[in-house]
Design a binder for these strands. Structure first.
Lengths: 342, 342
DNA sequence: GGTAATAGCTGAAACGTTTCAGTAATGACA
DNA sequence: TGTCATTACTGAAACGTTTCAGCTATTACC
């Protein structure tokens, strides 16, 4: 059973192909009589017509497609959904896009550029790139006239739109919170702080908060690895090996915190009895954990929503000027921090 | 800067458009001299040529696109990524597809058919539907000649390919495990067991295991709600309200188990001291939790991989006959079960 | 009554590919 | 030398839309 095309509809309704197109797209500049319009609509319904979106985008240069690039665990590997943060974010992106009649083209942030050309070739109307992005190719993105939204990236460029949070401020919030509770020696547990990404900003926030309180940033209080559960456990073991010199820790991601708590427990230690912890993200995990932990809350759903809105808005206007959207943070108190007195 | 098309390449290389197409696609039936081939390739490189995939799929009727439909929390809402199971699954699907040069078109399983027509109109080469699917429209899917892979669905049909696990057997495994540990009164905590999906099968498995052991399936041991963290906590509270009549529980999803553990804790109860628990899925959560819980392990990554392979394999051959793929299960022992003696 | 504007429609080019059917040149073979 | 295959390539139709430019009635205006 061959699919009905616009031609078939035209024949069925006794009008030209262009008329059908105008009716179906409600093209505002075109005047169509109600009678004709009705006939076309009926014919389309009768033939069970659905437009071929590939042909449409070939012709109209719009695709109603948004490309979403999600980081991978390693170059060429799976997506990082082991961290629920990304699932929550994607969920919100998909929902917002779907509501507006857009579909998602999903891909990993490959180290090579294949994803790039593919995003380009599919004719996506916008691209949302999540997380720190392997730098250089970004320039190539600028050359094609597609709006790009960077989520949680610290690449500054007139061309790109960005959406993120005040990572440094959030980290200061967390660290100061611990200081206010009387802690003086505070560990910093994080993913890599080499690249200019959120972890580096949170590192800076931690340092500033410490310094402003007149506390030293000590070498052996720093744990830097990968943003996953496994590293949290490793850090916890190392914490013990290094002699448990701190009474509290600021951990830069909930998923790491899960591992830290687990790692401590394996060694008979408890949060917050043996280590107070403040975390970052406030994914569901932070309430599920035992103990539920205090963490810097960010509105992940809103982040995803804004990313889509920014992309679509940029796609509709022709201007390509940088827009920046920063979402607010707050700290959510749960059961992972104890007051500390010497 | 207008993008270079195949015509530009042809002109640059001094050959015809068709020759360029043949070279670029390495069409096996066509003979091209090495010299010409080289010239074309060089021209393409020089012009920074990338093919327009929309045009290609319009012409060739293949899109290198796989549609993925993921359940939503509610009709018309976000995707169910609050359950990490889906993130893991999608991650594996994306990875496998990407490796094979395919991209993912992601959408929620809408109650209305819009997703359906869209999947159709985009010309996807295959569709992967995850979870129980709002029934009727499936027939419409059959009419277009696109391979459909149902993941974790119990819809039986000659047309659809399915991939899943022995849910009933897995549930029996779990229930029997508890029985062997001496438990006689075992609660069943689950999502909805109304629809003919995995939860119903697991419910059947639970019943069979109980009956085979000569134990009664008691009304007040059954908790059926939604597959999420929140419901787990609710069930735990209800468990206490109903008078803590069971010594163990089989919970049909890890995400629910997280809530159960939390809910019990809120009431001063502990797993496994006050309730032994065996769960299902073995997502990362089950090790992260405190206590890490015993659960029926399924290979989620393999599930995603097979789903893609099934779809691609079906797309390449013309035949549309049902294929079924069942993955093995095993039980992973952790710290959520105690021996029980009267 | 004549011109201008407008409403309502249509024809055909264009979008960037793939692929079928064909052609010209070369070599093999009797 | 003539026929037949084979190699290497080309022309053009087709895929299903959008959209520009144009055409014909009809109405509006002076």
């Amino acid at each position: 059973m061959k699919r009905a095309g616009i031609k078939d509809v035209a024949k069925e309704a006794g009008v030209s192909v262009s008329t059908v197109s105008y009716v179906l797209n409600r093209t505002p500049t075109e005047t169509i009589s109600p009678e004709t319009s009705r006939r076309v609509l009926e014919a389309a319904k009768r033939l069970n017509y659905v437009p071929n979106l590939n042909a449409r985008s070939l012709s109209s240069r719009r695709s109603n497609l948004i490309g979403v690039l999600i980081p991978q665990t390693e170059p060429g590997r799976e997506l990082v959904f082991s961290n629920p943060f990304y699932g929550d974010l994607l969920s919100s992106i998909e929902y917002t896009a779907r509501q507006r009649g857009y579909h998602l083209l999903l891909s990993g942030t490959q180290e090579d550029q294949s994803y790039l050309s593919i995003a380009r070739n599919r004719g996506v109307d916008g691209i949302i790139i999540i997380g720190t992005y392997p730098g250089e190719n970004l320039n190539e993105l600028k050359q094609m006239d597609i709006p790009v939204v960077l989520v949680d990236s610290y690449v500054k460029d007139e061309y790109f739109h960005t959406i993120g949070i005040e990572d440094k401020e959030g980290a200061k919030l967390a660290t100061r919170y611990l200081i206010e509770k009387g802690h003086r020696r505070i560990a910093f547990i994080s993913g890599s702080i080499r690249e200019n990404g959120v972890n580096m900003k949170r590192w800076q926030g931690y340092c500033e908060a410490m310094t402003e309180a007149g506390l030293p940033v000590e070498e052996d209080a720093i744990y830097s690895g990968t943003v996953d559960y496994e590293y949290g456990a490793i850090a916890a073991h190392e914490f013990v090996e290094r002699g448990r010199r701190q009474s509290a820790a600021f951990v830069t991601a909930d998923i790491i915190t899960m591992g830290v708590i687990k790692g401590l427990m394996e060694q008979g230690l408890r949060v917050p009895r043996d280590l107070s912890v403040v975390s970052f993200d406030d994914v569901n995990l932070s309430q599920m954990a035992y103990p539920a932990f205090t963490t810097v809350h960010q509105d992940i759903a809103e982040k995803g929503r804004q990313a889509v809105l920014l992309a679509l808005d940029a796609a509709s206007r022709k201007e390509r000027r940088h827009t920046e959207c920063i979402l607010p943070l707050s700290i959510v108190e749960r059961d992972s921090v104890m007051e500390w007195r010497e």
